[in-house]
């Protein structure tokens, strides 16, 4: 269960249906809903980064909001100060986030589990203050943040929101495929071996230090790309959007979708976009219901009690159960 599933005809068929469905969606719903789906996919990419790091490599991060901020600010600064093309900023955001993640991964090498959680926690809490810092204000816009335009539609006839939806979808599918290939490969087995037993892994000749820092970098890269895409969607960056609660959000999404999974990030992303709105509606309608964030917290704890493997883990378990059952009936 831990390794990404091998390619089977069923999996390909399911994937094909999902892609066709995703491609039709923007023509069925309003631009605003497409915009929300784009936001969900951007979150999904960030969750993918977190899953690779935490789910597959066993390194905790409750500071991924910081890498999200790195990607978002890199893109925003290139757009605002240098008037780059939107999509040209993505590789740069990816590279910068990779570098920051790799560098943060170096001290993280000496830290395990809890201590790493603590260091990343500190990183997340310190990020908004760093972004507001006077000396960087010329570049970051200080407390005000930066406004950037939405990318122009790539194809005529599509609205800006629809075009961005397709671009984000393509990037997400590509990054999911990359993650799948990475984790199925020799390197992927090394990454998972380090999670399961670091000492045995290094005895087998795996360079744990190199793998752990590189995984940290890759994870930050995914999250940085997501941050850059989120800037295109919201047309705006501001320091307080990247506070500790964003990090909590990402963790919640990961856990809900299934932290040791690749497709689970889609459910996680959808959850992060639609459930808070839903929770807000409820708590507005009924004054005795606690506020959305409290509901989020309760949901997080309940999820850990009852479905620690997340939505995708539940789907996998259901499929396995169904397979066993039908095999039993057939035999």
């Amino acid at each position: 269960m831990d390794r990404p599933n091998p390619i089977t005809p069923q999996l390909l068929a399911g994937f094909g249906i999902a892609i066709v469905f995703a491609a039709v969606v923007p023509h069925l719903v309003s631009d605003f809903t497409s915009f929300q789906f784009t936001q969900a996919m951007a979150y999904g990419i960030a969750l993918l980064g977190l899953n690779i790091l935490t789910g597959y490599n066993g390194q905790f991060s409750i500071g991924h909001s910081a890498f999200y901020a790195v990607g978002a600010y890199t893109a925003a600064i290139l757009l605002y100060h240098f008037e780059w093309n939107h999509y040209a900023t993505l590789p740069v955001a990816a590279l910068v986030a990779f570098a920051v993640g790799f560098l943060f991964g170096l001290p993280a090498l000496r830290l395990e589990g809890l201590y790493l959680a603590l260091a990343t926690f500190a990183f997340a809490v310190a990020t908004p203050q760093l972004l507001k810092f006077d000396a960087f204000e010329h570049w970051t816009g200080g407390v005000q943040g930066l406004f950037v335009p939405k990318p122009e539609p790539l194809i005529e006839g599509l609205s800006a929101d629809q075009s961005l939806y397709y671009v984000t979808l393509a990037i997400m599918v590509l990054l999911m495929a990359v993650a799948w290939c990475l984790l199925r490969s020799r390197s992927g087995r090394a990454i998972m071996a380090i999670r399961d037993n670091p000492i045995a892994a290094s005895t087998m000749g795996i360079n744990t230090a190199l793998y752990k820092t590189t995984t940290f970098g890759i994870s930050a890269m995914y999250t940085g790309i997501a941050g850059a895409l989120s800037v295109f969607v919201t047309e705006f960056v501001a320091p307080d959007a990247f506070n500790f609660f964003l990090a909590v959000n990402l963790l919640v999404g990961s856990v809900v979708g299934g932290i040791v999974s690749i497709p689970g990030v889609i459910f996680g992303g959808l959850f992060l976009v639609f459930v808070p709105n839903f929770a807000q509606d409820i708590s507005r309608a009924y004054p005795f219901v606690p506020p959305p964030w409290a509901i989020f917290g309760i949901f997080l704890i309940l999820a850990i009690y009852f479905v620690p493997f997340g939505v995708w883990g539940a789907v996998e378990r259901a499929l396995a159960w169904w397979k066993r059952k039908s095999a039993g009936l057939g035999g």
């Binding site: 856990v255 506020p291 964030w293 409290a294 917290g297 309760i298 997080l300 704890i301």
Partner: peptide
């Protein structure tokens, strides 16, 4: 366990 602690953090803050 860390996630449960973070859930508690969020709940106390929001409430």
């Amino acid at each position: 366990q860390i996630i449960v602690f973070i859930g508690l953090l969020v709940i106390f803050n929001a409430v």
